[in-house]
Amino acid sequence: MKKMEKKYIPLAQFFETCTQGTFTLTYEEIQNIMGHELPNAAYLNVSWWKKTKAPSTHFFAWINCDYYVTNVTLGHSVTFSCAEQDVVSDDKPQSTYITRPIEANDARAYINLQEELFAQSPFGYYTPQERNLTVQQVRKTIADWRKDKTSTILICIYNGQFAGYTMLLGNTASRTKHIANVRIAIHNDFQQKGLATVLLKEAEKWARTNGISRLEASVTITNTIAHHLFDKLNYSKEGTRTQAIKIDEQFVDEVLYSKIF
């Protein structure tokens, strides 16, 4: 693959997984995939999208996968077509997703996603509006985690939408730096697509790369879907935390899982 600016690499990964002949992405969806804002030229000039000459490199994200820009509605959407595929047109790509580390520009979308997940899930620790995170707080946390390399958030973008994430919470103490707690959440609109499995496997890759050899997870005893996920990926049950969480005025136990690499 020809070199391009780092911020366009997630977009290139997205096109690598596309199998559809023709589809349209909004500007917001493209920026969701990238984790970065598009430059002003992308809003002002159709030529920015259709150029294929140096010194620009952004177009390699789709050209290297044999996709070409066929239509641009400035500031709104871009239509891509693949010369190698039978031309089957649709408004959206089909079942195309990527996972990537969270970026500072994702802070607002991440907060919104969390609030929706808090409202949907009966198993989480927080209720809606309880955390009151700010964009500045999230951006600072991202910056701190990148320095420590013990914690991270991996975002899943499905057809240009924020679908879910996995969070790895590590330790800075030298004797426990090899351990991280893993949490996974998938939006209801993107359930039963295998994304939780994808995110957990990506979390394991990140852990290995960053010197973490033990992952831990706490799962409420009633969360059968999560139990199936951790069992499927060969996590071990280590015990039960009695009355670990209180949901609707009822105490609920948690099962402790772990995996050692």
Rank of each mutant, 00 (worst) to 15 (best):
101 P>Q: 14
58 H>V: 00
175 R>S: 14
10 P>L: 04
102 I>E: 03
121 S>D: 06
189 D>N: 13
18 C>K: 02
257 Y>G: 04
17 T>F: 07
241 R>E: 13
244 A>W: 09
154 L>Y: 04
27 Y>M: 02
242 T>M: 12
240 T>P: 01
33 I>R: 00
217 A>Y: 06
188 N>W: 05
128 P>S: 01
229 L>S: 05
42 A>L: 08
105 N>Q: 06
83 A>M: 08
109 A>K: 15
229 L>V: 11
198 V>A: 09
134 T>A: 15
215 L>N: 08
3 K>D: 13
198 V>T: 12
200 L>G: 02
6 K>Q: 05
68 Y>M: 07
6 K>Y: 04
112 N>F: 11
67 Y>S: 06
6 K>W: 01
69 V>E: 01
251 F>G: 10
64 N>I: 00
145 W>K: 03
100 R>A: 07
252 V>L: 15
149 K>T: 07
182 V>Q: 07
98 I>K: 08
56 S>R: 10
76 H>Q: 13
223 N>W: 03
111 I>G: 08
121 S>N: 08
232 K>E: 13
225 I>P: 14
16 E>M: 06
159 N>L: 05
126 Y>F: 15
229 L>K: 02
83 A>P: 02
224 T>Y: 12
239 G>W: 09
88 V>Y: 11
112 N>I: 11
188 N>A: 05
46 V>Y: 00
188 N>T: 04
178 H>D: 12
57 T>S: 14
163 A>S: 03
109 A>D: 12
3 K>L: 14
59 F>I: 05
185 A>M: 11
142 I>D: 00
171 N>C: 10
105 N>W: 07
55 P>G: 10
94 Q>C: 14
2 K>E: 06
33 I>Q: 00
110 Y>K: 09
57 T>I: 07
251 F>D: 10
20 Q>T: 01
35 G>N: 00
226 A>L: 09
17 T>C: 08
151 S>F: 03
23 F>A: 01
196 A>Q: 01
23 F>N: 01
76 H>M: 10
71 N>V: 09
131 R>V: 13
198 V>L: 11
211 G>V: 13
206 W>C: 06
